[in-house]
Amino acid sequence: MLEARLEQANLLKKVVDAIKDLVQDCNFDCNDSGIALQAMDNSHVALVSMMLKSESFSPFRCDRNIALGINLTSLTKVLRAAQNEDILTLKAEDAPDVVNLVFESAESDRISEYDIKLMDIDQEHLGIPETEYAATISMPSAEFQRICRDLMALSESVSIECSKEGVKFACQGDIGSGSVTLRSHTNVDKPEMNVEIDLTEPVSLTFSLKYLVGFCKASSLSGQVKLCLSNEVPLLVEYALANNSYLRFYLAPKIGDEE
């Protein structure tokens, strides 16, 4: 039996919105520590890993490990019926056929209830080791989104070079080339505008911009985004959520494609 009550439906709406353009169906693995999700895109070059800790819900009850195989398009359709400020409750039996979503409006006494049929999804789970990254960059998520969108106009891939000088996002396309360089920067008034670069050794990697732009859909979830890079290792893009919950994206670098 699963029962998870979310104060604001907004959170799930945004999370699903950010993922739905990367994966079609995925399992929401529910256990007593919370709701986790891990899925790869069709090409298996990107991976999304979500963790909504039990503390994010009030209350949270999960007696048994349940895997809810949900089609994200269907979930999006249902979540559209929820207002941002609605209280959202997820319910499922121990061996469920459906997941039940209840939206309660705090202002009016409106209760809407939806059932989504579940699917059997065969997904391989990857074990992601704790990695010490050579470079960790924290920056405003809106800034990262803007850089990606701007460079997307020129090219399909971006090289991220991290050195003592700062971090340089550079691209070369048919019409020309462009680059954005950020330096460490602390804004006392608005700490969410800080740019922090933590570097142990210089890193330079190339990534597909289409995927990065996709990841940036999660920008509204968190004011800050953390990019973790190491040579020859997938890039980690992390959006930290309240209560140690997180939404992480991993993307394989482009290797040997240096035109």
Binding site: H44, H125, E156, S208
Partner: peptide
């Protein structure tokens, strides 16, 4: 979704599959 269709067109040349970086977990919980 439209985004998925768009992503299908993405150029993934030179990108290794993530399973070559991360090993598959032996048992699915």
């Amino acid at each position: 979704s439209r985004g998925l269709k768009q992503l299908r067109k993405a150029d993934t040349s030179g990108m290794k599959k993530l399973s070559s970086f991360f090993t598959a977990k032996p048992a699915v919980k």
